[in-house]
Design a protein around this nucleic acid. Structure first.
Lengths: 336, 336
DNA sequence: GTGAAAGCGCTAACAA
DNA sequence: TTGTTAGCGCTTTCAC
């Protein structure tokens, strides 16, 4: 494993100069810098993260905290964040909050995390009050993806607006009995995302003078199987809806499967809309509100990287865009 | 950030003793050890991975190399591996082989990876010959999940056997026109997994005197959308199959969606079987060959951890189990 | 059973 | 512009 000394020896300069040259610091003559860079490349030298972490406090790693690996959204964010991090020479290490609460004690106060990484990106997590404070008081850059935490950088769609757009689409098609499969109860999930979407659904209906029937609100935990089950129950209820707004595309898939099993045609008998534009949505012909988690991950990564570089942007809550994608799963309310 | 010195001061012993006590090394009196452990707990002391990495060469981290985050199988393996790693105090850091080849140069020779982690777990990767050698010659423990690499620890199902079981199931139901949606062409994937399954399909048919029609073999890239597209083409061909064996459940979902769109009833008009037992398969009523990637991840993690502890097991290729899970997507060939 | 001291490979003053 | 030096927080001889 070649060290900084090897590069120094090879170039005839001191290790301090090698360090400066390689990190792009000033006070290095262009010629020296070139020489050093050439030697480093030739020798395949890569600075030891342990050593620089110890001495300079820079570990060249950021922690990515996710509730689980099981949802499309998280995976996309992880890939997005990792792509810019790796591009800048940072490693990404994963903190998966398993179903067991164990890993979650003092989540952000956790010394290991702090001793190993330079920044934290946390996604879609239903933070406790204590955790929000920990996050805010963390002595390193942090960003959250999904929901806003006061005092911390965040990226995400405006959930209320996105959900409203979905419901308005159904209302515009003439539907009035509009059900909703929400995700707000899942453990460890960002509660506010699910709640904001559900609240927006309810309020949109009420604005149009519709009082949602209690059976129109099902709980899908942001997962396909429970969404399917909830939909089946809903469609068996009295006054079944003619349209369903699912809080995520994965839940919308569950709605579609449930409908198919009951022999309902989509969109003739039931219109379905989701949020996300999952990789599979086009194949399902699912109408949805598209958002871009990959880009959100990239933005979060850039934010913490900027902060590490001293470029502290004042913008705290960043809203990423969304758009309605029309496909085959929604249609006008048939004249009854 | 409390350091080893704080613990030493608090206990009145030297830092060397603290180090020994905490790591469970011999030559520490029981009483001292207790005192040290108590003080460490009280102070919330966690050894700095950078420092121990630098001095002792133990980083307490393992690299998890995955092609992408987009497939269920990988995610399950990652969660499984992470669960045991974290349990032993190791961090998991991710190396995602993006679609761009960039990250892949000298994959396992990559100094950064070696300077940061104690072991490597690589999954489902279509290794080049050079990479297989790098992996074998790596001066740290390694394990692969999915396919066997000669000379390296590996875990995975016997793909040929699992695929054969799937096809035999369809044959047993009387089907003879059995199509296959395979995954062997996807970039960056472990080619042998897809190929082994496809070969097994072909051989099973041939053993029964059936010459598979060329149109019966579609390419699904281990992803749902291309699997759906390939299925649609296959079912539109001459001599459409009465049953389809998909190389993974995600591809089987694509088959189901394609069939539904064409108005085919499952299993009356088309039987479908997959491999995996994906989280969603039960909701789809999909008959499948179940395997357990979570457990495979755990096994891989234990293997490298054992090796790090000096317990080098001689078993190189570990076969993990599979079983047929009967659901509603397969049925007897209707008498034509 | 325990401590002192030398390093691991870097970064960050401070000199020159 | 460059080099020297003192750590960063541990592990690991080697003494005691």
């Amino acid at each position: 494993m070649t060290s900084i000394h090897d590069v120094a020896r090879r170039t005839g300069v001191s290790i301090a100069t090698v360090s400066r040259a390689l990190r792009g610091l000033p006070n290095v003559s262009p010629r020296t810098r070139e020489l050093v860079q050439a030697a480093a490349a030739e020798l395949g030298y890569v600075p030891s993260p342990s050593a620089s972490g110890l001495s300079g406090g820079r570990h060249r790693a950021v922690a990515l905290v996710i509730p689980s690996t099981g949802r499309w959204f998280y995976n996309r964010v992880v890939e997005g964040a990792d792509s810019v991090l790796r591009g800048e020479g940072f490693d990404t290490f994963l903190v998966i909050l398993a179903a067991t609460m164990r890993n979650r004690q003092d989540l952000f106060r956790n010394a290991l995390l702090r001793k190993r990484s330079d920044a934290v990106i946390a996604l879609g997590i239903d933070f406790t009050v204590a955790e929000k404070e920990e996050l805010r008081d963390l002595e390193m850059p942090a960003a959250v993806v999904g929901s806003a935490v006061p005092g911390v950088h965040s990226v995400g769609v405006d959930d209320a607006a996105a959900a409203t757009a979905a419901v308005e689409h159904l209302l515009g098609l003439g539907h009035r009995r509009i059900g909703h499969i929400g995700g707000e109860t899942a453990y460890g999930m960002d509660r506010s995302v699910g709640e904001d979407r559900s609240t927006a659904w309810r309020e949109a209906l009420e604005r149009h003078g519709i009082a949602p029937h209690p059976s129109w609100h099902g709980l899908g935990q942001f997962l396909m199987p429970p969404a399917k089950a909830a939909t089946t129950r809903m469609l068996h209820g009295e006054e079944p809806p003619t349209a369903i707004f699912a809080g995520s595309d994965e839940m919308a898939f569950g709605v579609l499967v449930a409908a198919a099993e009951l022999g309902l045609r989509v969109p003739e008998d039931l219109s379905v809309i989701g949020i996300d534009d999952h990789d599979w949505s086009e194949s399902y012909g699912l109408t949805t509100i598209r958002q871009d988690p990959y880009e959100q991950g990239r933005t979060a990564a850039r934010t913490v990287l900027d902060a590490l570089a001293g470029v502290e942007s004042p913008i705290l809550t960043r809203r990423s865009g969304f758009e309605l994608v029309l496909r085959r799963s929604t249609g006008p309310l048939p004249r009854g």
